[in-house]
Design a protein around this nucleic acid. Structure first.
Lengths: 162, 162
DNA sequence: GTCAAACATTTCGACGTCGAAATAATGTGC
DNA sequence: GCACATTATTTCGACGTCGAAATGTTTGAC
């Protein structure tokens, strides 16, 4: 069976038979796949009156047990500091997080989950995981594991280490 | 070696040992990988005074040999019609594409590459492909092919058929 | 032929992100 | 202790996308 990238590659082949279509296909598929995945995430969270970015932030706080600074949060979710200020404003307005002073360092602050925020993560995380598993449903255990390992290899080679 | 998702998963495991971390890790990696890939694309095109979205549109026209309507273009690049109108406006202003009437159908139109637009694609495509190949440099031929096939499988199961 | 439904494109207002500048607090060298 | 570079957060203006509404065009039923 064929996906949209196969058509895409055929067209290039007809116009320019000198290009490395394999790499082009793989990169194209990674980007396309991320759009589909994001769409499915958005769909799921919408059922719970959440934006993906909202879950992204509160789930990051939930899993890290301790309060995080805006800087740490911004790095975790891969956005700029300006965007994060905006996100926190909105989450505070919804009562899901609060800004708290950090003792002994007045230029930073702690973003902490409220009880409501924590409950919301815990109420949606199982469904979220089911949704994620559903997206990978087409893969058998072996393929899934190999795929996962290759993703890690690529991420590390692109600088996503720690 | 570990990537950022490994840390991410350890944190979840410490908070909630009842979740399917495998699916979570894979989906998380797909999304993270797409951010890194986009960043590398942006970097490359910036060297040629191009935005990624500009290349995206003109390359779509280049590979499809015939002029496309805005509707076809929007579907190809996965954006809404409103965003596409905006993109075409800017590309017309840069002299890379033009809007032309389609004979016998006044409610549609053809977006066509100018000679300048076509030359620009042809001048940058080889470097673009090299850049893409570079991002996959860490994979041996076997892994690369398996990875590519798995991507196709996932895309098809998520509805990216034709 | 006329009217209504379907279609393609553009316009509009709102939203979220970005990079750069502004503000405020901390750390360092002397 | 005093300047000065550094760090953390917020503010600002610009940009690109979105969904919905508006505009203009075609198709089809009658």
């Amino acid at each position: 069976m064929r996906d949209a990238a196969d058509d895409f590659l055929d067209q290039w082949a007809a116009q320019r038979d000198d290009l490395d279509l394999d790499a082009m296909g793989t990169i194209g598929r990674i980007l396309r796949l991320s759009r589909f995945v994001n769409a499915r995430l958005k769909e799921y969270f919408a059922e719970h009156d959440l934006e993906t970015w909202e879950f992204d932030v509160i789930a990051t706080l939930r899993r890290s047990a301790r309060p995080l600074t805006p800087k740490e949060l911004a790095e975790s979710v891969m956005i700029g500091s300006a965007a994060l200020t905006n996100r926190i404003d909105r989450l505070v307005a919804r009562g899901l997080v609060s800004r708290e002073a950090v003792p002994g360092n007045r230029r930073s602050l702690h973003v902490t989950l409220t009880a409501e925020g924590r409950d919301l993560v815990d109420a949606t995380i199982e469904g979220h995981v089911r949704n994620q598993r559903g997206m990978l449903g087409g893969l058998d255990a072996d393929d899934a594991e190999r795929f996962n390992r290759t993703l890690r290899t690529l991420l590390i080679s692109l600088g996503d280490s720690r």
